[in-house]
């Protein structure tokens, strides 16, 4: 390049500039803009998802209790893989949310029922995010999203730094007080991998909870999603949850 004279340089520069200009004209035509993401289960086999119908939940708390039994979660009221919240909206103003012992022992009687406008129960569990901030933040690779879509914790590798617990916008993680590692709802991975239902789904009396295969368009879960309007929690966070809520009120946090 050193001994380029002026003419050669101008020739080179103009050809390059022309090529670049043509590229900008051609590329918008070549690549149509895509305003949606491909589903993560394309090509993969099973891909687990979950749906909760808020209109069916009666707040009996059996799901939370069965989860603790099935998964050997400490019984104290500070560690939950799943829990049920009660929302009470009042007129003229007032939003009360409670979850005494995760809903396992029921809820206290409603005060001043004449001021209540809406009240309902909301079960909570791992949101099965497609872009899980917990996985992103784990410094050592102890938490990960399995190939079939479940976010899991490697108990033998977790160092207990608690960063994943900070990163989860939904508060579904906790530090196991005995094992000193992060713990969370695993969708009863040990059960669903054997064709069983998660413990919470199993014991729910009204069928408010449903798990299923998102990659199969004919699974009950896929059919439910295709025929109902649903919402996810905190969509502005960009976590892309695979936990969907039917009949969810705006006030649900």
């Amino acid at each position: 390049m050193k001994n380029l004279n002026r003419r050669q340089f101008l020739k080179f520069a103009s050809v390059t500039a022309l090529a670049a200009a043509l590229q900008t004209l051609v590329s918008p035509l070549a690549a149509a803009e895509k305003f949606f993401r491909e589903p993560p289960w394309k090509g993969k086999k099973k891909y687990w998802g979950f749906a909760v119908d808020i209109d069916k939940c009666i707040g009996c708390g059996r799901c939370a209790k069965a989860c603790k039994t099935e998964n050997d979660v400490p019984k104290e009221p500070f560690f939950f893989r799943t829990w049920v919240e009660r929302y009470i909206l009042r007129r003229p103003a007032g939003l009360e949310v409670t979850s005494p012992n995760g809903g396992i022992d029921g809820y206290p009687a409603l005060t001043s029922p004449e001021t209540i406008t809406k009240t309902f129960f909301v079960p909570k569990l791992c949101n099965l995010c497609d872009s899980p901030p917990c996985v992103q933040s784990c410094p050592v690779g102890a938490t990960f999203k399995s190939e079939d879509g479940v976010v899991l914790v490697d108990r033998k590798w977790c160092v207990g730094c608690r960063y994943c617990i900070q990163a989860c916008p939904y508060g579904v993680r906790y530090l196991h007080p005995v094992l000193h590692v992060a713990d969370k709802c695993t969708l009863c991975y040990h059960r669903i991998s054997r064709g069983l239902r998660p413990a919470c789904v199993e014991v729910c009396p009204t069928g408010a909870r449903m798990h299923g295969d998102l990659s199969d368009p004919n699974s009950p879960l896929s059919k439910l999603r295709d025929t109902s309007h649903y919402q996810t929690l905190k969509p502005h966070m960009g976590t892309r949850p695979n936990l969907v809520y039917l009949n969810m009120d705006q006030e649900v946090r």
Binding site: N71, L152, D154, W157, H190, A199, V203
Partner: peptide, 18 residues
């Protein structure tokens, strides 16, 4: 992926109660 692949099988092998 950036995790211990054996962990998946270890979790699958956890005891079932229901």
């Amino acid at each position: 992926g950036h995790y211990r692949a054996d962990a998946v099988d270890e979790i699958k092998a956890l005891p079932v109660l229901y």
